[in-house]
């Protein structure tokens, strides 16, 4: 009953005011609340303050003992970062996503799959509108509104990413690069809104995307050089006695590129969320409003803005590197001749 006394109406209001930024991370808090539901005292508090979103969470963090609180923080953060089969809309309830198993493979729809579909729906809505307005546009008209905003990004990808990295024949790869850029960008941004989850913060999603880049790179290399040219590429133009070293290195190099893409995107998106949540949980672990006001909330907002930048940056980096790899794979002279030249010396 001592804990109930801590949550006076006045104090509760303060907590609510301090935790408004936390709504960005409502999923994490929801888990904190649900993990504590078995506790009798929690139940009573939840009943008292049921319309308030953050009350159970605040109680959960405040009520826990110090070492226990740290463990809870870790669990909450992990819960927020990881995929699961429940799409929670705290405090309005949650949706249990269907579990599908086909031929022994678990292809059940999870939170991140739902986010991917939301991204897909958003992309299709936005770009069907943009594409439609471009179809209506005559040569003498300037694009307006959404079409204009998207054109800046499309033009950026087209010229600064695709054309400058791939060079000749870049038009073929534009649809892939544009799609991958906007897909990742929307995924990253949706992770930053309340109730959202970052699908690109899941290693499986980024792995799939970079496997696409891998296939595009390999196929374009085959198309550009033929089988013989492709195999020659693997020797990097060195003397035959070095092939025993060069060929494995080149083959490994083919796989490290998509691996680097995978880890870069996944780690960047995950790290930002972990930092935001960790900053928030500092105030719960230390049980101090001062820390919350002076440290947690300002720093979390700062990291949030940084994340907004990182969302664009990582989408750009992924696209940029994909274009660069395609450019390297399809380049005829730029890659082979200097290597051949050094081999003669």
């Amino acid at each position: 009953m001592k804990r109930v006394n801590v949550i006076q109406p006045k104090a509760l209001l303060k907590v609510i005011a301090l935790l408004v930024p936390l709504l960005f991370n409502a999923n994490g808090l929801a888990f904190a609340a649900s993990s504590q539901t078995s506790d009798l005292t929690k139940n009573s508090v939840a009943a008292v303050a049921s319309p308030v979103v953050s009350a159970p969470a605040a109680e959960a963090a405040h009520g826990a003992e110090a070492p226990e609180g740290e463990e809870k923080a870790g669990d909450v953060i992990m819960h927020h970062i990881l995929d699961n089969s429940v799409f929670a809309f705290e405090p309005f309830g949650s949706i249990n996503l269907p579990k599908i198993v086909v031929g022994g493979y678990d292809i059940s729809v999870t939170k991140h799959v739902v986010m991917l579909w939301v991204v897909a729906a958003l992309l299709l809505t936005v770009f069907s509108a943009v594409g439609g307005s471009y179809k209506k546009l005559t040569n003498r008209q300037a694009p307006k509104g959404l079409a204009n905003a998207m054109e800046a990004l499309v033009e950026f990808i087209r010229l600064d990413v695709a054309k400058s990295n791939i060079g000749h024949g870049y038009e073929k790869h534009l649809p892939y690069l544009l799609t991958v850029f906007f897909f990742i960008l929307f995924c990253n941004l949706l992770g930053l809104i309340p109730y959202g989850a970052t699908a690109t913060g899941n290693v499986n999603v980024t792995l799939t995307l970079s496997v696409f880049t891998f296939f595009v790179t390999q196929i374009s290399a085959f198309k550009a050089h033929g089988v013989k040219g492709y195999l020659q590429h693997l020797t990097a133009g060195t003397h035959w006695s070095l092939w025993i070293i060069m060929v494995p290195i080149e083959i490994i190099g083919q796989f490290t590129k998509p691996f680097a893409l995978t880890v870069r995107l996944f780690a960047n998106m995950t790290a930002g969320h972990i930092i935001i949540l960790s900053l928030i949980f500092i105030s719960f672990i230390l049980k101090s409003y001062i820390v919350a006001v002076a440290v947690s909330v300002p720093f979390a907002i700062f990291i949030y803005l940084l994340e907004l930048f990182v969302a664009f940056l990582q989408a750009f980096v992924f696209t940029m590197l994909s274009a660069l790899f395609i450019g390297l794979a399809t380049a005829h002279e730029g890659h082979d001749e200097p290597a051949a030249g050094t081999a003669h010396h």
């Binding site: 995929d83 991140h112 992309l123 594409g131 038009e171």
Partner: peptide
């Protein structure tokens, strides 16, 4: 998580194909 990989691939390919048809074509031509 094979399921997630599967869904990502499916979603991405469908989005790519539809966008190529309805968006990238007109925009890039324009």
């Amino acid at each position: 998580n094979p399921g997630l990989i599967f869904w990502t691939a499916i979603t991405f390919v469908i989005v790519l194909l539809i966008l190529k048809k309805i968006a990238w074509g007109p925009i890039l031509t324009a």
